[in-house]
């Protein structure tokens, strides 16, 4: 499913500051990293896409329908999960019984598998779980709904390092190529190396929305004892330096998301 953001602006109150300004992008299937500093507008953007907020200007279309119209045909293909999104039921079992029937692609097998990977019982009350475990249970449920659009707002908040790896594996195993997953995070290093695209917000504006391939066509990332003279941005890193360069050769590099994030804020990148 395709999400189309057409010049979206949003403010929470009529006299308040703009939370988002002039956001235009087309988001296609794949795993998208939505990054930005605190207050950049990540959660607001996810809520606009979900249809929980109405854009002050512009519109958000999901398969041609306005998300704010909250049509069942769209809602059954979309799910949002995050620390600020409470589940309406007391346990995952109750969610399966009362909530999951609205989602035609729900897979109970996948849910059981994901929950057992985290060592969580589906009958346990969510209020009895620690913040991290409750978050893991919610994520396991969200993935098992297998909605074509999945919005994950700060999914790694409160989750321990080991579980972050498990979560990364779980997402990689559960997500199909047809699904559009947007993962919002301010700690970009948490789930590295499995994104297909990056959406970068800065103070409510869109820095860029590009696929990983498009970024790697224009930039390369490196680590070395010295900073190359043509580096666009560099910073000290464990006794050496890591840097961003304009791509000059065919040599493949991995994206250093943290460096990309910092570079986009400190200098003008050719993106």
């Amino acid at each position: 499913m395709e999400i189309k953001l057409e010049n979206i602006s949003f403010r929470y109150s009529s006299k308040g500051p703009m939370a988002l300004q002039g956001i235009s992008a087309t988001i296609r299937p794949g795993i998208h990293l939505l990054m930005g500093e605190n207050g950049a507008g990540k959660t607001t953007l996810l809520r606009l896409i979900a249809g929980l907020l109405k854009p002050t200007d512009g519109r958000c279309l999901i398969d041609g329908a306005r998300s704010y119209d909250l049509l069942p045909s769209i809602l059954s293909k979309l799910f949002i999960c995050g620390v600020n999104v409470d589940f309406p039921m007391k346990s995952i079992d109750e969610m399966v019984k009362y909530h999951a029937p609205f989602y035609p692609n729900f897979s109970e097998d996948m849910l059981r598998r994901n929950l057992s990977a985290f060592g969580i019982e589906s009958s346990t009350l969510l209020s009895d779980l620690s913040t991290g475990n409750a978050q893991k249970a919610k994520l396991a449920y969200a993935l098992s709904l297998r909605t074509p659009i999945l919005l994950l707002d700060e999914p790694t908040n409160g989750v321990d390092i080991d579980s972050k790896k498990q979560l990364q594996r779980m997402i990689a195993e559960s997500i199909t190529e047809e699904q559009t997953v947007i993962i919002s995070t301010h700690s970009v290093a948490d789930l590295e190396n499995f994104y297909d695209a990056v959406i970068d917000l800065h103070t409510g504006k869109l820095n860029y929305a590009l696929t990983v391939d498009q970024i790697l066509d224009r930039l390369s990332f490196g680590v070395g004892p010295e900073v190359p003279p043509d580096a666009l941005y560099s910073e000290p890193w464990i006794g050496s330096f890591r840097f961003v360069l304009v791509k000059a050769d065919e040599k493949l590099t991995d994206i250093d998301y943290e460096l990309l994030y910092m570079a986009a804020r400190k200098t003008k990148l050719p993106l």
């Binding site: 979900a50 069942p72 949002i80 409470d86 309406p88 909530h99 609205f102």
Partner: peptide, 16 residues
């Protein structure tokens, strides 16, 4: 008035 899941109630796939 239960303090849970307002967002997911709004996003429940059914007409208003």
């Amino acid at each position: 008035a239960k303090p849970r899941g307002r967002e997911l109630q709004t996003l429940l796939p059914a007409l208003g």
